[in-house]
Design a protein around this nucleic acid. Structure first.
Lengths: 336, 336
DNA sequence: TTGTACGCGTTATCAA
DNA sequence: TTGATAACGCGTACAA
């Protein structure tokens, strides 16, 4: 690899002159500047980011941590993040916690060791110890998707309670009374809030949530499939199922159909968050869609702001919960 | 950030002793070793990767470049790659070329500048100049998905000609004669090979491929949708459509249905590569599935090997084309 | 067994 | 306007 010294020799000037000429950080004669630029281009000089990093104590990487790299949600967010980061001169390191707090912790250790300039985190951990761990991170952190209570970090997500409530109310309006809930891991903010939206909507309709109708697992389709099978084997079979995320809805629907039930005739299914080409899924799922692009946009924007300003402890943590959007499908029966 | 010097002060020894004790690169008394380790743990010392990188001339990052971050194929590969890389002590930088050679070139420039230790590349460029560009990359490169002819780099992918041929033969067996082909960008290896498989299968059946039935675009669902609309507006409407990748098949199917045709009654649709929960797509698509996990496994394994061995120019480039697997769905009509 | 000094490539400070 | 030099943190050859 060519170094600044090679440029200096080629141009016949000193290395400090080269540095100044290339960065424009001082006065250089026009002729010298041209010579240096020509020499740099001629030998294909590119500044060594490690040397810069060592000098300034930071890298030009930012980290993107997700709980499920195979979920289209992660892909959609990452796409926006990568583009914005690249435009701002940053590269994106991806880590996958796979929904496992231990793996997330390990990833955080590595990324902190790498001195990343900022972290976009979809948190999967829980508890006060976890919050403290996140608070100790020296670089800017923006959390997305999962809100961590009491954490002094920015958060961008979707109004999860509303998401759960809207779908439950819709099912209630259609006359459903026994509504199964396939939830995310208890303790995860979005899981708890979606369940809360469900419970509150039921309560508002004078219905007490039946614990037998509520199951939970990490946000994965395969887990939802299993839980749905269990749910439908119970004595009080629900007339409808609310799945807490996109792949859970797909898994639940698949289980319903595999068990020989018809959807929506026998069992209705609704879900939170969309998948690509969902128009081809039959029956088309009724869902609340998340404004993923906007979410990603805000998240990366906020992170870049923090990184630009340096750690400004004065500014309080921002919190944005975008409204989900109801999208009617054909997966719900009208029982009235 | 804590440095090796802080550890030395805390432990009351010199920095070289710390370095030796931590790396085990020399003789240290047991007591000293314990003291050093305790001190390092106490103050939370982590070696600065930039200083190491500067010292040794390389980073512990490897790069993953894909043409479409939102495609489930990319997510599935990346998941495996990230896990294996993490186990081997590497972090993964993700870049998205979006199918755009210029963006890929820009990404390569950045990643080379970052001195990544290796690159996993899904190449989208073409031409001799492009091949030369890839050859000039100093670090190990493993290409996947798209083969670049004449490039002295390892390649792992799927037998694309076979994929195109198998599906075409299947349609021919069912009695189809006018088979539309929604292909990937001409010049891309997999696009050309899939088309070739299609053409050869037709030829073997005594049929000359009708250029009016062949359209192409970059591997995206939206493009496929448009091309399908165009294709079906033509005078010689096909009885079946072969789409060259997963999202193209979905886009084509969506277009077929949106235009009021029934699938498979009016028009059959087959595609290459699967999507998650494809069992819920109605009609279920007949496809050839790619062994994505295995592909990813081999790709990252080979890359790590190269990185371990250093650049060994003696070893010739390896090339592996995994066989696709035919998966029958319900998206094809039997015309016999 | 431990400490000192140097170099990796870059930038900033200071002197010429 | 330019050039020499120190510093960033680490690892190691060399000296003690």
């Amino acid at each position: 690899m060519k170094t600044i010294r090679d440029v200096a020799e080629t141009a016949g000037v000193s290395i400090s002159t080269v540095s100044i000429a290339l960065r424009g950080s001082g006065p250089v004669s026009e002729e010298t500047r041209r010579k240096v630029l020509a020499a740099a281009a001629a030998i294909g000089y590119v500044p060594n980011p490690m040397a810069r990093g060592l000098r300034f104590g930071g890298s030009s990487h930012l980290a993107f941590i997700t709980g499920d790299l195979t979920n289209s949600f992660a892909g959609a967010v990452l796409r926006v993040v990568e583009r914005c980061a690249a435009e701002a001169g940053y590269t994106v390191i991806v880590a996958n916690s796979d929904g496992n707090p231990a793996r997330e912790a390990a990833a955080l250790d590595v990324l902190e060791a790498q001195r990343v300039a900022g972290i976009l985190l979809n948190p999967v951990g829980q508890g006060p110890g976890y919050r403290d761990r996140l608070d100790r991170i020296a670089c800017p952190v923006v959390t997305y998707d999962q809100y961590v209570a009491g954490l002094g970090r920015d958060f961008v997500g979707v109004d999860s309670e509303q998401a759960g409530r809207v779908l439950t109310e819709y099912l209630l309006r259609l006359g459903h009374r026994r509504i199964g809930f396939i939830g995310g891991s208890p303790g995860l903010w979005s899981a708890d809030m979606r369940l809360q939206g469900y419970t509150k909507a039921l309560a508002a309709a004078g219905i007490t949530a039946d614990p037998a109708l509520i199951v939970a697992a990490y946000y994965r389709g395969a887990e939802a499939y299993q839980r749905t099978v269990t749910l439908l084997a119970g004595s009080t079979r629900p007339t409808a199922i609310l799945a807490a995320n996109n792949v859970m809805a797909l898994g639940a629907l698949q289980a319903v159909l595999d068990l020989g039930y018809r959807c929506p005739a026998d069992i209705s299914v609704v879900g939170i968050d969309d998948v690509p080409w969902s128009g081809l899924v039959k029956p088309r799922l009724t869902i609340v869609a998340q404004p993923i692009e906007e979410l990603a946009q805000v998240a990366i924007e906020w992170l870049l702001e923090h990184m630009a300003q340096g750690a400004d402890p004065a500014m309080p943590a921002r919190r944005l919960e975008l409204p989900p959007r109801f999208v009617m499908g054909e997966s719900c029966a009208d029982l009235r």
